[in-house]
Amino acid sequence: MTTEQHTEHVNAESIEKALLSFLEAKTKTSVAPAQELFSSGLVSSMFAMELVVHLEKEYGISIVGTDLRLDNFRTVQTMTELVLRLRDTAETVDGA
């Protein structure tokens, strides 16, 4: 299954589940959707770049400019919202 095929059927639940699996595999720790990732010390600011690359590659989005704020990466929930918003924006632009 290619990334393009994978991203056609995404929703908040599937993004959240995939992000939790990704983070748990990387950190070897159980992660909750609303858990503060950076302030809890679970992940570092250096890991934020890995998160950006992962989200861009996995969901076919570009995270640039103001979307690169740490606030968008604090929890799995905020990352899920970011992915959905960027995908909706991309679909609107592509469909226009």
Rank of each mutant, 00 (worst) to 15 (best):
R85C: 09
T75H: 04
L37T: 06
L20P: 04
T29A: 09
R69L: 15
L19E: 02
A34N: 12
G60A: 03
E4A: 15
V83W: 03
T89Y: 11
K57N: 15
F22W: 07
S21L: 08
S39M: 09
T75Q: 01
I63G: 05
V31A: 00
L70E: 11
E13R: 01
S14I: 06
R87K: 15
T78F: 09
S44L: 08
E36W: 01
I63D: 03
A34Y: 07
D67Q: 14
S45E: 12
T80A: 00
T92H: 12
V43A: 03
M46D: 12
V53R: 13
D94M: 15
E36P: 01
S21F: 05
E58S: 13
R69W: 10
S30Y: 01
G60Y: 02
T80P: 00
T89F: 10
E8P: 04
T78A: 11
L42K: 03
S44D: 07
L86R: 14
M49N: 08
R85K: 15
L42T: 00
V93F: 09
S39G: 03
F38A: 07
F73A: 04
S45G: 11
K17S: 04
G65F: 10
G95N: 15
P33L: 05
R85I: 08
H54R: 08
R69I: 12
Q35H: 02
A96D: 14
F47G: 02
I15K: 00
M46Q: 13
K28M: 12
H54Y: 15
N11M: 04
L84I: 08
A32N: 12
L68W: 04
D67M: 13
F47H: 03
V52I: 10
S14H: 08
I15V: 11
E91G: 10
E91H: 14
E91T: 14
A48P: 02
L55S: 03
A12Y: 05
N11E: 08
T75W: 01
V53C: 09
A96P: 10
S40E: 08
S39I: 07
G65T: 09
S39P: 04
S30L: 01
L19R: 04
S45D: 13
T66W: 09
L55P: 00
R87S: 12
E56H: 10
G41S: 07
K57W: 13
V52S: 01
E36R: 01
I63C: 06
M1N: 13
L70C: 09
S62Q: 13
T66E: 14
D67K: 13
F22N: 01
V10F: 03
E36M: 02
T2R: 14
T27Y: 00
I15Q: 02
V31W: 00
V93E: 11
Q35D: 06
I15L: 05
K28P: 06
T66S: 14
L23G: 01
E56G: 08
D67W: 10
T80Y: 03
T7M: 15
T78N: 12
I61Q: 02
T92G: 10
H54N: 11
A18Q: 03
